[in-house]
Simulated assay, not measured.
Amino acid sequence: MSERPRRTQAERTAATRARLIDAAYDCLLETGYAATTVGAVQERAGVARGTLLHHFPTRASLMVGVVEDIADRRLAVLASPDAPPTGQGWDAVVDLLWRDLQSPAFLAALELWVAARTDEPLREALVPLQERLFAAIHRAVTALVGDDPRAPTLVQFTIDLLTGTTMAGMLGPGRARTAVVVERWKDALVTLAGERR
């Protein structure tokens, strides 16, 4: 039986950093931004305080790491094998964006968006990553519908409508209502894009 090769320092550092980010991400999902303190993340990750502070000297730096991770998680939804193939039309666009907005990564991002309203360092970290995410969404959507000059506007309308619908459905028993809104928006997009369904 051969021994596993010993991990390098860089591998151990990366693993600890990932564990801390995962712990912070889980805290955001389960208890929200206010309760995602350095102490809570340290406890959940099972590391010494000095270890956490070595990787993330401030809560803001920890949240920046989480923001980057969330952007990567959401981009993975867009690039997953479940993503529709190119040329599938607007129904596929709505389904793809809706799947992203139902993911835990979106809920964690939502926690950070709200906090960023009054947290300047968090906002500064969130804005460029959000721009990167939206650029990736627009590229993914363009691949689905082709190079339609209406696509940027229709994509933005779709993102805004589905985001609002997701948020409205979070606080009440609105699952059936949100499904109706999604289907109605698919019908509206067909009209707006001048296509047949």
Score class of each variant (00 low, 15 high):
F106T: 00
E120L: 13
P84M: 06
H54F: 14
P104W: 10
P84Y: 09
G87W: 13
S61R: 12
R74A: 11
I137V: 15
T58C: 08
G89N: 12
F56R: 00
L96A: 02
R132C: 03
D72L: 09
D82M: 03
A60C: 07
A125K: 00
A135Y: 06
A71F: 12
R132K: 07
M63D: 04
P121W: 05
V127R: 14
A83M: 06
G87Q: 09
F106N: 00
G50C: 11
A83R: 06
D95Q: 10
I70D: 05
A48T: 08
A136I: 00
A108T: 04
W90I: 05
A108R: 06
R59V: 02
A79T: 09
R74I: 05
G89D: 13
G46I: 10
V114R: 15
M63T: 01
E120W: 13
L107P: 03
S103K: 08
W90A: 07
W98E: 05
L122K: 01
T118N: 13
G65Y: 06
A116C: 02
P121F: 05
D119Y: 06
V77N: 00
R73T: 01
V64Y: 09
P57V: 02
D100N: 09
A76E: 04
P84L: 07
P104G: 06
R74E: 15
V127I: 11
E68T: 04
L126D: 05
Q102L: 13
V66P: 00
D91W: 13
V64N: 11
V77I: 12
A136S: 06
L101H: 12
P121K: 00
R123V: 00
L112R: 04
D82F: 09
Q88C: 12
E68M: 06
R73H: 09
H54Q: 12
F56T: 00
G87A: 06
A115V: 00
R123Y: 09
A115Q: 07
L107E: 14
E124L: 13
P57N: 03
Q88T: 14
D119M: 02
P81L: 11
T118M: 10
P104Y: 14
P104V: 03
S80Q: 08
A83I: 03
V94K: 06
L101S: 04
L96Q: 08
R49T: 13
G89S: 08
S61N: 01
V67G: 06
P85M: 08
V127G: 10
T118P: 04
L129P: 01
S103I: 09
G65R: 02
V47W: 03
F56W: 04
L122M: 03
A76S: 11
L78D: 01
A136F: 05
H55F: 06
A125C: 04
F56H: 02
V67F: 12
L52G: 03
D91L: 11
P121L: 02
G50K: 08
A105K: 08
D69V: 04
V47P: 02
D69F: 15
V67D: 05
L53T: 03
R117C: 10
T86Q: 14
E131Q: 15
S61F: 04
G50T: 10
Q130L: 02
L107W: 15
S61H: 07
R49V: 12
D69N: 14
G65N: 04
T118G: 12
Q102G: 14
A71S: 14
L96M: 13
Q88Y: 09
W113Y: 15
P104R: 10
W90L: 06
A92K: 07
V94G: 07
L122E: 05
T51A: 14
A79G: 05
V67T: 15
A115G: 04
V94S: 10
D69W: 14
L107N: 13
